[in-house]
Design a protein around this nucleic acid. Sequence first.
RNA 1: GCGGGAGUAGCUCAGUGGUAGAGCGCUACCUUGCCAAGGUAGAUGUCGCGAGUUCGAAUCUCGUCUCCCGCUCCA
Length: 510
Amino acid sequence: MAAQSLDQIVSFCKRRGFIFPGSEIYGGLQGTYDYGPLGVELKNNLKRAWWRHNVYERDDIEGIETSLLTNRYVLRYSGHEKGFSDPLVDNKTTKKRYRLDHLLKDQEPGVLDAIAAHLGIERPDDMDVFVDALLQDTSKAQAALLAAKVVDAQDGKPGDWTEPRQFNLMFKTQVGPVADDESFAYLRPETAQGMFVNFKNVVDSTNRKLPFGIAQTGKSFRNEITPRNFLFRVRELEQMEIEYFVRPGDDEAVHDAWIEDHIEWWVNVVGLKREKIQLFEHVKLAHYSKRTVDILYNFPTLGFDELEGIANRTDWDLGSHSRSQDTLPLSENTKARVMLNEHSVEKLTYFDQPNNQHIVPFVIEPAAGVDRGVLAALCEAYDEELLENGETRIVLRLPAVLAPIKVAVLPLKKNEPTIVETAKKIKKLLQSGGDMRTVYDDTAAIGKLYRRQDEAGTPFCITVDFDTIGRGRDGDTSMENTVTVRHRDSMLQERVAIDDLLHYIKSRIA
RNA sequence: GCGGGAGUAGCUCAGUGGUAGAGCGCUACCUUGCCAAGGUAGAUGUCGCGAGUUCGAAUCUCGUCUCCCGCUCCA
C-alpha cells in the first residue's frame, strides 16, 4: 500500500535519516529542511540522473554553475525586482488579505477615480503604475483606500484596510563591510538568470550553434509568504533548469518536445507512475512567458501539484539584459514591455552566419524542483506491503539508480569469525570503486537486516553464509566463494560468485 | 498575517495539579543454517521555548517558536 498521507512520509524520512527539519534543536526555521545520510544520497542520485539525461546523453547542452549571490541589476532587468514582489493589504473587518492590484481590479471606476483624487494624481490606465503610485506613501495609500470606500468582495462593504505592504519574495543580503542601502546583493530566486547573463560567455567559449541549451542545478531562495507542506514549498530550494535557445519561430515545436521528453524522464528514470502525472496549462502567465505548462504529480495529501514548469520565455530575458535594445530584432511583446537597460554592457544576441544577421534567440525553459522530485520519488516508492504471514513490510521501491545505498553486505551469523571476515572483505571489494554507497551490517538477525535495507530502498543484499566459506552442509564445498544476492522487491535470492559480484551489481544500478 | 488544532523518548502515542510512561525502534552479550525469532542487560526526555499562578506545573494562565488544517500567496 502506498503512502496515504504526507505525514507518514515526514515521520518516515526523519526516522530513517532522509530529511530533518532545519535548525531543529533551536526550534526550527520555517521553510528549511536538512537532508540526512540517506537523503543526501537520494538527492545526489536524482541530480546525477537528471544531468546524465539532459547533458551527457544529448549533443546540444552545456553545463554551467553560477553564483547564488546576484548583482541587483540582473534581477532588476529580469523583472524580478518589480514583479517578484506582491503588494498586500488586509481588511481588518473580514480578516481577508488581498493583493493590492487584484483588489483594485475588482473596484468600480468611480472608486479608482476617488483614490487617484485623494493621491492628487490622474488615474493611470496601467494598474502597475497605479499600484506603484500607491506604494510611494503607504499611510497616504491607506487613507486613500478608506476615503474611496474600496469594497471587499467578501462582504460587499467598504473594508477597514491596513496600509498596503510590499512583500518582496527575494532575499537581500549585505555584501562587503559597509552596510548602506546600495551595498547589497540578492540571493537568486531562480538559477535561470545565471544562464542568461552568461549566454555570450558560453557561445563564445564553445562555438555552439542554435539550437543549444545550458543546464544548471543549484540552490535558489524565495521568501515564501507561507512555506508549507514539507519539502513542497520551502524558502531554500534546489532547481534543475535548462535554458534551451532556439530560433524565433522554432520555439513552439521545441517547447512541446521538451514537455514530452521530461514526462518520459519522470516516468522512466524516477519511476513515477504515468497515471499520477498530469499537465497543467497556465492561463495567467508570468511577465516573461508566452506559454507555460506544468508537469504535476499526484502527491499524497496535496493532490496534483507542480513538479516541473516548462516555460516559453521568448526573447524576454536575453532582450532585457541587453544594451541598445532599440537596435535588436525583438519580438513585439518584449519590445513593448522591456525596461530600457542602462547598465548592461553587452548585447545578448546570436550571429546567424547563414543569413548574415543578428538574432535574439527564443528560450524554452524546463525548470524542475529537486526537492519536489525527491519528495515525489519517496512518495511513489514508499510501500507498506502485507506479507503472507500477516506482517507488514515497509519497502522503498526506488529505482536502483536512485537508491541511496546500492548494496548491503550481511553475515548470516556474526559469531562465526570466518563469515564475518569474508563479509567485510566483500564490502571492501565493492566499495573500492568509490562510486556507490555500500554498507556492512551485523547488528541483528538476518531477517531484520533485510527489512532495514528494504526501508532504505537498498536494491541488493549480499549474504555470506557457510557455503561461502566452504563449510556447507554434509561437507559440501561446491558453493565455496559464492554468496547469496537477495533482491529487495521480490525477496528472491540467487547464488553469485564473489569474483562476479562487482560486475553483477554495477550492471544493475546504472 | 488571520482563524482553528497540535507539540511528551528516534518514531507512534498515553498521561487533566503530587516521583515522567507504553509499544515499536536502538545498544551490548548469549542464542540463531536466510526474511522485523528468543533470552538477559542497558541507554535515551530541559514534557517545544520563556514567563506567571501555586507548597508543588507535562497538566492552569500569558507570551513566543514550530508543525498541521482553512483563508491568503505561490512570478
